[in-house]
Simulated assay, not measured.
Amino acid sequence: MNTMQLNCFVEVAAQLSFSKAAEALHVSQPTVSHQIKALEDELGCALLVRSTRTVCLTDDSFAFLEYANDIHPSHAGSAAALCTHRGPPHRLARRAREAGAPARDPRPLHRDPGRGAAANTFA
C-alpha cells in the first residue's frame, strides 16, 4: 500500500467518480483505476462497486476509509509542512550559501568509466 493508492481511494470515495478523482489528482483515469485495483488486490477485498455510470462504496470500503482518512490527512499535512519549511528552491540555495555550504562547481564532471572514481575530474 502506498500513498498514491490511498490518495486515489480517498478521492474516489469523496467524488464517487473515477474521472472526477483523476481530474482532482491531476492524473489519468486509468492511473486511478490501476491504483484502486492494486489496493483491492493487496487488501483482498472489493472496495468499490463499479457500473458504467456510478461508483458505490462497499461495507469493507467504509471500514477502510476510516483508516485511510486517519493516514491521509497526516501525510498531506506533513508534506505541506515540509514545503512551507523548505520554501521555493531558489531560497534553498541562498540559505545554503548563507550557512557556509560550499558552492556547487558549475563545470561539468567528466567521468572516465575505465579508471574508477579517482579519475572523475572537473573540466
Rank of each mutant, 00 (worst) to 15 (best):
Asp70Met: 13
Pro89Tyr: 02
Glu11Leu: 02
Pro113Ile: 04
Ile71Met: 13
His85Gln: 13
Cys56Gly: 09
Cys83Thr: 11
Ile71Phe: 14
Ala119Leu: 00
Ser78Cys: 08
Glu11Gly: 04
Pro89Ile: 01
Arg104Gln: 09
Ser19Ile: 15
Phe18His: 11
Gln29Cys: 07
Gln29Pro: 08
Phe62His: 15
Gln35Phe: 00
Glu11Cys: 02
Ala63Ser: 13
Asp70His: 07
Leu6Val: 03
Ala76Leu: 12
Val10Met: 07
Arg111Tyr: 09
Pro108Glu: 07
Ala63Tyr: 14
Arg104Lys: 13
Arg115Asp: 08
Arg86Leu: 15
His26Ser: 14
Leu57Met: 13
His26Arg: 14
Asp70Glu: 10
Leu82Asp: 05
Asp41Cys: 07
Ala103Phe: 09
His34Gly: 11
Ala123Ser: 12
Glu40Phe: 00
His110Phe: 08
Ala99Gly: 00
Lys37Trp: 09
His90Val: 09
Ser28Gln: 15
Asn2Glu: 09
Val12Lys: 03
Gly114Glu: 12
Tyr67Pro: 00
Ala99Trp: 02
Ala118Met: 09
Ile71Ala: 10
Arg91Ile: 10
Leu25Asp: 06
Ala117Leu: 05
Val49Ala: 11
Leu16Gly: 04
Ala81Tyr: 07
Ala119Gly: 00
Pro88Gly: 03
Ala68Val: 04
Val49Ile: 13
Ser61Trp: 03
Cys8Leu: 01
Ala101Ser: 09
Gln35Asp: 05
Leu47Thr: 02
Arg107Phe: 05
Pro30His: 05
His110Glu: 08
Ile36Trp: 01
Ala22Leu: 07
Ala93Gln: 10
Gln5Gly: 01
Leu6Thr: 01
Leu6His: 05
Ala14Trp: 11
Thr58Pro: 03
Ser28Leu: 11
Leu16Gln: 14
Asn120Cys: 13
Met4Glu: 14
Leu47Val: 07
Thr31Asn: 07
Ser19Met: 14
Ala24Tyr: 04
Glu23Gln: 14
Leu6Cys: 01
Ala63His: 14
Arg107Asp: 08
Arg107Ile: 02
Thr84Glu: 06
Glu66Ala: 13
Thr54Val: 07
Thr121Lys: 14
Ser74Ala: 11
Gln5Cys: 03
Glu98Asn: 10
Cys83Gly: 03
